[in-house]
């Protein structure tokens, strides 16, 4: 028989491994989402750079495809414990509030031009990524801060090729970040 100290250590080992399994599963799903958004954002930035007059349509399509992909991911990978309809409604509200606040900042409070919009949305998106990372794992923080920093560098130092820079930094960054998450 073991003593209570050894029993506590064994339970701590169990807690530790359970947390690691949960994080590993979260990273697996998050990596798929990141790669999907990365592909979509890469394409939208490329369209913005090559055919600026179609940029608005490209970004509306990108947002629809991005959110649609996340919904599909959620449907194909239902949570292991059913949280009820409340969680899905809350998730939907997160997207609505996210885009509503972004629109308010860029079109109502301020009147952002294409370059400002190209910097604002990735940094705004990455802010949530970084904040989520404070609870769910350092990979989100690293990806969020990394892409935000590179976006700012591009905003201040890259000229007309800024959308192309963002295709690689934001789109490519999310794809690489997502693939990296799978290896952690």
């Amino acid at each position: 028989m073991i003593d209570s100290k050894e029993a506590s250590a064994a339970l701590a080992d169990i807690d530790d491994i359970v947390q690691r399994v949960k994080q590993s599963q979260l990273y697996e799903l998050a990596s798929l989402a990141a790669v999907w958004w990365g592909v979509v954002v890469f394409a939208a930035n490329l369209v913005t750079w090559l055919w600026p007059i179609y940029a608005v349509y490209a970004w509306v399509a990108a947002d629809a495809l991005g959110v649609g992909g996340l919904i599909a991911l959620r449907v194909l990978n239902p949570p292991h414990r059913h949280h009820g309809a409340g969680l899905d409604v809350r998730l939907l509200l997160v997207f609505v509030l996210f885009f509503a606040l972004g629109y308010l900042c860029t079109n109502v409070v301020g009147h952002f031009g294409p370059r400002q919009l190209g910097a604002f949305w990735p940094i705004y998106f990455m802010l949530f990524y970084t904040l989520a990372g404070l609870w769910f794992g350092y990979a989100f923080v690293a990806i969020g801060l990394g892409i935000s920093a590179l976006t700012l560098i591009g905003f201040f130092y890259i000229g007309e090729a800024f959308p192309l820079w963002m295709a690689f930094v934001n789109g490519g960054g999310l794809i690489l970040g997502g693939l990296w998450m799978r290896r952690i």
Binding site: I2, A10, D13, I14, I17, V18, V21, H80
Partner: peptide, 19 residues
């Protein structure tokens, strides 16, 4: 009770029944 087997079982038990 063996430490590594405990970890294996803890990891598998954290998953849904068929996973």
């Amino acid at each position: 009770h063996q430490p590594l087997r405990l970890k294996i079982m803890a990891a598998l038990n954290a998953l849904p029944a068929t996973a």
